[in-house]
Structures are given as structure tokens and as C-alpha cells.
Simulated assay, not measured.
Amino acid sequence: MTESHVVTVRGLSKSYGLRRVVDDLDLDVEAGEVLGLIGANGAGKTTTVECIQGLRRPDAGTLRVFGLDPVTQAEQLRPLIGSQLQESALPDRLRAGEAVTLFAGRDGRDGERLLEQFGLSERRRTAFASLSGGERQRLFLVLALLGRPRLVILDELTQGLDPAARRDAWAAVDQLRRDGTTVLLVTHELDEAEVLCDRVVAMRAGRILDAGRPEELVDRHGRRATMRWAARSADGSATLLDELRRLPGVADVAVTERHVEVRGDRAAIAHVGAALVRAEAIPDDLTVRVPSLEDALLELLDGTAEHLSPPAAERELVGAAR
């Protein structure tokens, strides 16, 4: 483990019965970054973070978090990690404020600040069983951030949250980044990963398919950007179309009786716009579709299905273990 690595995983494997959920996985999490694990259900994301936190004992491989073994040195690690896990629960009768006091220890000022930040101050005396799903999710986020941990693990951070609460959760993660806290985020919300994550790791069948900044995965695997507008019969349109085809980054120009469609990389959007301005042919119905991380992940998963080994392909058909 280097000084810049908060988490180092080498050769991690974990099975449940005959199902191999994590398969010889290597992973590094850099200090101060927000790293997202993305992939379909059953990709092994939750099991991976549970092993990193010491909640699951791996079948094989080595893990180090802040240089410590999560299995044998869990007590030393516990104060350094905060987590909001997908299947967290509290006793039904435990009040929200009592949970914060229990987890906060001696200093409750941080808890009061977080309750206020996530709109739970008025629910302080409400029993856990009486909280809505979104309120429970916000409470677990509060508990994860108590004590200002150096590593925060968030599994489906905004599941069940309304738009306002989702905005507050995103702001909290952004503040953690500014404070230098390392965040490991498991999410199915790919717009969330694009906004929050410095890097993302795409997983399938317990393996890493690709990793990098969200925009890098989009560039490598996303579909082309598309610009579309209604076809016109104005003089010089053929000349304009020829110019569009020669522009940097343009892959093709398709013309039908109804529409002109230009496809290319993201840089092509600027070149096409400039060409339309020069030609004084700016369409009033121009639409632009830019590839997203969701497009990239779908293309990546589709493109790798045929390369899975037979056992891995069979595991994909079995379904989600975690």
C-alpha cells in the first residue's frame, strides 16, 4: 500500500455457496477521492465494500485500509470509517436523537449539526419505526458522518430520497471531498456518479471491466453525440452538408426528407455549431444529445457479455447475490 492509497485490494474473491460474487478483484482507492462502484445488480459491489469494511470475511485475497487488515484489526479501523449501508436497520423503538447520541459518543455537537443539515431536527424524538423511508436514509447518512471519519462508505446514498434531500446528500459528499475525506460510493444512479465521483469502477460478475474518470468511460464506451434538426431546402444546403462532413470529430451526416442528423464526438458539437453560424443557417429546432455514463455502462456491459468465461456467464444468469 502506497501513502496515497487509503484502500488496497488484491485478488479479492468471495463466494456464497456455489456463486462466485467477487472474482479475483484488484482495487485501489486514493486518499481524498470520491470513487464510485457501478454495475448491474449482482456485480459484487456491495460484497466488495462489506469486505473492505470487515463485515465479510473474504475467501481469498488481501485487503488493507489505512494499512490495517479489516478482518484482524477491525477495532483499530472502526473509528476511521463511517458507513451507510444498503441494508442498515435500527431497533424500531430507538428514537432518531437517541441513535445519534449512541453513535456520537461524548461529543454530540456534530450530531446536532448533521440533524439540522439533513432536516431531521424536528424528528429527533421520533422512533425509527415511524420514520419514512427517506428519513431513515437521511438518518443513516447522519450516523455515517458522525465523528468526521477519514473514509466514508455509502451504499445507494440517495435511494428513497426526495429531490431536496437528494440535493442535500450530494452537497454533503461534495463537502467531504473539500475536507479531504475519502468516499467510496456504491450506486445505481449513474447521473449521481457523473456528478459526484472523481473516478468510477464498472463491475460485472465480481470483476472490473473498466475504470477511470466518468468522462473517460463515456469517451471510451459511450455512443456518439448526436445533433439533429429539420431538413430544409435552402440554397447552399448541399454545400453546408459537405462542410459538416469535413468538420473535425464528425463521424457521419445522415439526411432524410425530414431531418439532418450529425453524429460525432463531443468536440464536434462546437464545430457544427460554428459552421451553422457561419452559414447563417441556425435551426430553431436543433437538439443535441450527449452520451452519458449510463450509455457507456450499457455499451460496456453489452460488449463484454460474450467475453465472460462460462462460469461467470452462468453466474450472471443466476441473478443477484448482493
Score class of each variant (00 low, 15 high):
Val142Gln: 00
Val142His: 07
Val142Trp: 07
Val142Ala: 09
Leu145Thr: 05
Leu145Gly: 07
Leu146Lys: 11
Arg148Asp: 12
Pro149Cys: 08
Leu151His: 05
Val152Ser: 08
Ile153Arg: 08
Ile153Trp: 04
Leu154His: 06
Glu156Phe: 13
Leu157Val: 09
Thr158Gln: 01
Gln159Ile: 13
Gly160Ile: 08
Gly160Pro: 14
Gly160Val: 08
Leu161Tyr: 05
Leu161Asn: 09
Pro163Asn: 06
Ala165Arg: 02
Ala165Phe: 04
Ala165Pro: 08
Arg167Thr: 13
Asp168Lys: 03
Ala169Ser: 14
Trp170Lys: 01
Ala172Asp: 12
Ala172Cys: 12
Ala172Ser: 14
Val173Thr: 09
Val173Asn: 10
Val173Gln: 06
Asp174Ala: 14
Asp174Phe: 03
Gln175Gly: 09
Gln175Asn: 08
Gln175Tyr: 00
Leu176Thr: 11
Arg177Tyr: 06
Gly180Ser: 06
Gly180Ala: 08
Thr182His: 03
Val183Pro: 12
Leu184Pro: 14
Thr187Ala: 14
Thr187Ser: 12
Glu189Gly: 11
Glu189Tyr: 15
Asp191Gln: 13
Glu194Asn: 07
Leu196Cys: 06
Asp198Ser: 14
Val200Glu: 14
Val201Tyr: 02
Ala202Cys: 15
Ala202Arg: 05
Ala202Glu: 11
Ala202Asn: 13
Ala205Ser: 14
Ile208Tyr: 01
Leu209Gln: 04
Leu209Cys: 05
Asp210Gly: 08
Ala211Asp: 07
Gly212Tyr: 00
Arg213Cys: 10
Arg213Leu: 05
Arg213Thr: 15
Glu215Gln: 15
Glu215Pro: 02
Glu216Leu: 00
Leu217Lys: 04
Arg220Ala: 15
His221Ala: 02
His221Pro: 03
His221Met: 08
Gly222Asn: 04
Gly222Asp: 03
Gly222Ala: 09
Arg223Ile: 11
Arg224Thr: 09
Arg224Trp: 13
Ala225Tyr: 01
Ala225Gln: 02
Thr226His: 04
Met227Lys: 00
Arg228Thr: 15
Trp229Arg: 09
Trp229Lys: 04
Ala231Ser: 11
Ala231Cys: 04
Ser233Lys: 07
Ser233Pro: 05
Ala234Tyr: 10
Ala234Glu: 15
Ala234Arg: 07
Asp235Ile: 07
Asp235Arg: 10
Asp235Gly: 12
Asp235Asn: 04
Gly236Tyr: 10
Ser237Trp: 04
Ser237Arg: 11
Ala238Glu: 15
Thr239Cys: 01
Leu240His: 06
Leu240Tyr: 03
Leu241Pro: 00
Glu243His: 08
Glu243Asn: 05
Leu244Arg: 05
Leu244Phe: 07
Arg245Gly: 09
Arg246Ser: 13
Arg246Met: 06
Val250Met: 04
Asp252Pro: 00
Asp252Trp: 10
Ala254Arg: 13
Ala254Pro: 00
Val255Cys: 02
Thr256Ala: 10
Glu257Trp: 02
Glu257Ala: 14
Glu257Arg: 10
Arg258Glu: 13
Arg258Gln: 09
Glu261Cys: 10
